[in-house]
Design a protein around this nucleic acid. Structure first.
Lengths: 169, 169
DNA sequence: TTGGAATGTCAACAAGACTGACATAAATTG
DNA sequence: CAATTTATGTCAGTCTTGTTGACATTCCAA
C-alpha cells in the first residue's frame, strides 16, 4: 500500500480517501513522467528536422501497416492539414510509402519503407529502453496497476482506439 | 496480475518477461492517457486565449507561491523567453502578480491574484475529477503501482523537482 | 571598483497545431 | 445517369508555444 493513501474496507471493497493533495501529486507525476517519456525520441529527432509529430505518425504506421490517412487522423486526433504536412515530408524523404487503395481508389494506404522502419526501430528502441527500466524498477504488480489507471484515464473513444490497435495485431 | 505478462520468481524476487509488444502497449497507453489527462483543462482554456502553457504556469505558481521566474523555468523545462511571454499575458490580465525580490532585486516573486486562484481552481477541479474517477475505477493497489511506474519513468532532475515540490508543502 | 554571473525583458523566428476554402477523384444514392 | 457524399490533398492565414540573440539591471567577488 502506498504511503499516505488512506483506505478502508466497506462490504469487502477497498475504498480510497482521495484528498486533493493526493490527486495533485498524481497530476504532477503525470506531467513529469510524460516529459521523460518523450525525452529520448525528441533528442534523436532534433537536428534531423523532424519532431514529435513525425514520431507519432511513424509509430502508428508501423503498428498498423497499410492504414489509411483517415484512420491515422482518428488515432492521432489532429486535422488532416496538420497530418498532411508531416506525411508529405516523410514521403518526400523516402520513409513512408503511399499506395492508392485497391478496392477503394480514393484511399491511400501508408506503409514504412526500409529507411522508415530503421528510424522507427531507433526511436522505439530508445523509448522502450526507458519503459523497460521503469517497469523493472517498479515491478510487475506496479506495472499492472499503471496500465489499469492509464486506461481509466482515457476518453472513451481513445480507449476504443487503444483496444482496436491491440486486436488488429 | 495483468494478463499476458509473464512472471517468474528467482531468489524471492519477481521478474518480468518484457516483450517488445508489452512495452509498446505501455507506450501507447501513455500516449492516449495523456491526451485524456489534458483534455478537460484544454477545453476550458480554449476560447479564453490561453493554452496549456498558461495552465502549467498557473498550476506551479499556485503550488509554490512566491516562486521566482528562474525556479519556475527549471520546473517547466522551457526557456525563460518562452515562459516570459506566458507570464506577461497572465500579469497583464491580472491573474498573476510579480514582485521584485526583497533581498535580491533581480528576482521577481510570482503569486496568483484572487482571479488567478479562481481560474486555477476551475482548471484543477476538472483535472482532479478525471483523476479521481480513474483512481476509483482502478482501485488503491493500481494507484500505488501507477505512481511507482511514473516516478521510475522520470529523468533524474525531474524526480528531484517532483520531490522538492512535495516537501515544500 | 570593475568585470563577470545571474536574472529578467524585448524582438524575431520556427514548428506544429488550427480553420476555412477549394480541387479532384471515386463511391454511393436517388 | 445525375447528384451527393466521401476520402484525400493543397493553399493561405492564424495561433500557441517553443527557440535564439541582444540587452538592461542587479549582485557579488576579485
Amino acid at each position: 500500500m502506498a504511503e499516505g493513501q488512506g483506505t478502508s474496507t466497506v462490504g469487502g471493497q477497498a475504498l480510497l480517501y482521495l484528498t486533493d493533495e493526493q490527486l495533485r501529486q498524481g497530476i504532477e507525476a503525470m506531467f513529469f513522467a510524460y516529459r521523460g517519456f518523450t525525452a529520448d525520441p525528441d533528442r534523436i529527432l532534433e537536428g534531423m528536422s523532424y519532431g514529435r509529430a513525425h514520431h507519432r505518425a511513424i509509430h502508428f504506421i508501423h503498428c498498423a501497416p497499410g492504414t489509411t490517412v483517415n484512420n491515422l487522423l482518428a488515432i492521432l486526433g489532429v486535422t488532416k492539414q496538420s497530418l498532411n504536412r508531416v506525411l508529405r515530408t516523410l514521403i518526400e524523404d523516402g520513409l513512408v510509402e503511399s499506395h492508392v487503395g485497391r478496392s477503394d481508389k480514393r484511399e491511400r494506404h501508408l506503409t514504412l519503407t526500409e529507411a522508415g522502419r530503421a528510424l522507427e526501430q531507433q526511436l522505439s528502441d530508445a523509448q522502450r529502453a526507458r519503459m523497460r527500466d521503469a517497469y523493472r524498477k517498479a515491478g510487475p504488480e506496479a506495472v499492472a496497476g499503471f496500465k489499469t489507471v492509464l486506461e481509466a484515464m482515457m476518453d472513451e473513444d481513445m480507449r476504443r482506439a487503444y483496444h482496436a490497435l491491440r486486436e488488429g495485431r
